[in-house]
Amino acid sequence: MSNNKNINQDSTEKISIGRRLSFLNSQITYLILVIIIVGIIATALNPNFLTLRNFFNIMQQVSVLGILTMCMSLLMISGGLDISIGNMAGLVAMIFAKMLIAGKGIPISVITVLAIALILGFINGLIIAKSKVTPLIITLGMNYVFLGVALIIGGGRPQTITGQFEFLGEAKIGPVPVSIIIYLLILLFAFFLRKNTKYGRRLNAIGGNTQAAFLSGINVDWHIISIYALSGLIVGLAGLVLVSRLGMVRADSGSDFALQALAAAIIGGITFEGGRGSLVGAFFGVLLLGILYNAMNIIGVNSYVQTIILGAIIVVATVVSNIGKMRR
């Protein structure tokens, strides 16, 4: 026993370096490679692709999706999922537009809808934590509830607020659009929340093994409810960016986002098993989707064909990431 080599301070140095670089795992490396390849092809076909202005353009286009992907990723890492975040963002945007149109003023409207979003997330979390029903089913149902409520509030008609609220979506600070700054701030926040806080570590543990977390004295229900509520708050922010960018909102303006966010998270290496995956990966997943859309537009690919290609990319990415797992 005595000659067995245990860990000493020396090997710790290596460990800490290894951990710092651990986000550069194979999945992310592949993603960056694919992004570069797509970029090279797009630039060869149209030199306008590789410009700073186009890059900002892409980032701005994916900002709402990116923010929602952070919500989805945080939930998936905790062993959860929320299919309703798209329509939740739409509902929030709808309420906001109605309030502005009714002349309530921006500050009060912003605070109100963020509070509503927080409560909606809280409700999702409460039902999921207490009923122990799989989150997919619960949030699928809530998805329709949110859509229906948005339809009622909007009377089934689009609500236009052109020119009344452009700061989040269209304004720039220096050369950088505000929506990108918000997205990156949320990314940073989510990253630190997960890596550096006890709260994040416990979420990770719950996602990895709920039963062990429970028996380790972690307050599982509280963590689940609070992460859904926090996710709801961030969805509220995404809803505001959304309505600001569009200048109008329909009840189903957010409908496509939930599944796209799920796809981006999976492309980025977040798994359904929970406890695993990196938020940086999810960021690159979003970026890849954005670059593909943009490149196809610049090249002039038919929009119906674009839909097919995006669907296929999701399938390929998931299969590829699973091959990696099988080898492990």
Binding site: R201, R202, A205, G208, S216, E273, G275
Partner: peptide, 16 residues
């Protein structure tokens, strides 16, 4: 089943 977080590193299991 209910003691370890198999996908988490050793040190994180120790300190959880």
């Amino acid at each position: 089943i209910d003691g370890l977080f198999m996908g988490m590193p050793v040190d994180q299991n120790v300190t959880i």
